[in-house]
Amino acid sequence: MSDSITITIDGKEIEARPEQTILEAADAAGVYIPRLCSHPDLKPIGSCRVCVVLCDGRPQAACVKPVMDGMVIENETPAILQHRKNIIDMMFVEGNHFCMFCEKSGSCELQALAYRFGITAPQYPFQFPEKEIDASHPDVMLDHNRCVMCARCVRASQELDGKNVFQSIGRGFERKIGVNGERALGDTEMEATDRAAELCPVGCVVKKRVGFATPIGRRDYDAAPIGSNIEGERS
């Protein structure tokens, strides 16, 4: 078996390795496939569906689908782009995302995706759900208003920190991040140095007292849109 296989993304032939997922192969080739729950340090779970592509005509989450020789992938068709916009849009209206005073603003992956996709206002009605803030931990805060259920914190705690601080609980619209403590985050073995405190793509799991320490202009997505770093590697 050859070390290298060839796939096609939007008509462009790309060299890939058999153990890669579509997302990994695309990243390596400088093709950006938007994603939210996926993170290079975590095992993929394909839950957010933002990275869905058409793989030989069928929708597949690019973060979990392994490449196969000759695979034909459609990443930027009008239908796929609209699908992604719809998903991102739903995440906004199903939470309480007030970018104007969120400390993650400018470095938030959800916000950055919305900017990249040109979403200026939601097409769906705001749900304004009642959400809690868990500020019981001395160094880490959990603001459920901003959660997008990517479960990065769940996986980071288990896979990288060797703990089990977070869990997804509930079903459907009621689904939320729970903590394995008697009452709240302050009762868990969470520490500020945990990777789980770093990998949240939005402003849900944040380290306390950091706030707006990074000035406007130096935040992650102030200079270039999300995905630019991957696309920049194309050359």
């Binding site: 104007m100 400390e103 706030g211 707006f212």
Partner: peptide
């Protein structure tokens, strides 16, 4: 009420 204090200077100016 309920918001963390470091957010206040940015929130309240709205």
């Amino acid at each position: 009420q309920g918001r963390p204090y470091w957010e206040v200077p940015v929130l309240v100016q709205r």
